[in-house]
Design a protein around this nucleic acid. Structure first.
Lengths: 123, 123
DNA sequence: GATCTGTGTAAGATAGTGCTTACATAGTCG
DNA sequence: CGACTATGTAAGCACTATCTTACACAGATC
C-alpha cells in the first residue's frame, strides 16, 4: 500500500493512469503525451505503475500494451474511506461490535491497516 | 495534491493520522506511540502532515495539540473516485455533457485534475 | 539475414527523504 | 529568576527517486 500511494503521488504517473483508464495504450503512444520528458523516463514510470499493480501489461507483437488495473487502488481507497468516515459512524460500528472506543483506539488503528474492503458506492 | 498523497504514502504518517483522527493529541503524546523512533523524527512527520493540510495544530500552553483535518484529503479522495468509477458511469456523465469520449479523452484527463468533488457516501 | 521499430535496462548526475544527535526556544512552576 | 518540560530546528548522513544519455534486444519487414 505504501508502494501504491507513492506511485500515485507523482503527477506524471497519475496522468498516465488517466490515459490508460479506459483502454490500453502502447508504451510509445503513452510517451508521446509527455513531450517534455524522454521516453525512457516514461518507461520507468510505467514500471513503477506495473510493480505497484496499478496497471497491467500485455505484449502485442513488437509493442507492450498497458491498461489500468482497478484492483490496484483498492487498499488505498479503503484507507481513505476509513479516514473519511466520521466519528459517529465509527462509534456506531464500534458499538455494534460491543467495543469500547477508548480501549480500542490503538487496536483499531492496527487492525484497520489490513482488512476492510471499500464500500462500493460508485461502480 | 502531490504533497498530500506523498504525505499519506508513509506508514508512520498514516499511523499518526489514525491517532489524531478522533481527538487532538500533544506532540509528545503522539511520539510515545512510536518507541522505535526518536521524538524529532516524529516532529518532522508532524510538520509534513501539517504542511500538507492533513492535520491542524493548536498551541496549548507549553504543548502543541494536533488534530485531524478532514478536508486535507478531499483532493486525494476525488482522484480515487475519478479513477474508481467505471467506464459506463463516466460515459454517462460525458453524454450528459454532450461530450464525445474519443474527442475528450485528453481534455478530461486535463480538466479532471482540478475540479470535481467527492461523492460523499460514508459520512 | 539485414535492418528498422518499439521498448526496456544500465549507469550516472542531482535532488529529495527520513533518520539521528545536538541545540534552540517558549512556556511553567518553584 | 532559575530550572524543568515540551517541542521545534539545524546539520549531517545513508538511502531512494527521477531524470538523462547510451545501449541492448525482440519482433516486424524487406
Amino acid at each position: 500500500m505504501d508502494e501504491t500511494l507513492r506511485a500515485v503521488a507523482d503527477p506524471t504517473r497519475r496522468a498516465i493512469l488517466r490515459l490508460v483508464r479506459d483502454g490500453e495504450l502502447a508504451a510509445g503512444e503513452i510517451a508521446t503525451h509527455f513531450p517534455s520528458m524522454t521516453r525512457p523516463a516514461v518507461s520507468q514510470h510505467l514500471r513503477v505503475l506495473a510493480d505497484s499493480g496499478l496497471v497491467e501489461v500485455r505484449p502485442d507483437g513488437n509493442r507492450r500494451m498497458y491498461r489500468w488495473h482497478r484492483e490496484g487502488l483498492r487498499d488505498a481507497a479503503a484507507f481513505l474511506d476509513e479516514m473519511w468516515s466520521d466519528r459517529l459512524t465509527r462509534l456506531k460500528i464500534a458499538a455494534e461490535r460491543e467495543d469500547w472506543p477508548e480501549r480500542t483506539r490503538a487496536e483499531r488503528a492496527e487492525q484497520a491497516s489490513h482488512g476492510q474492503q471499500r464500500k462500493d458506492c460508485s461502480s
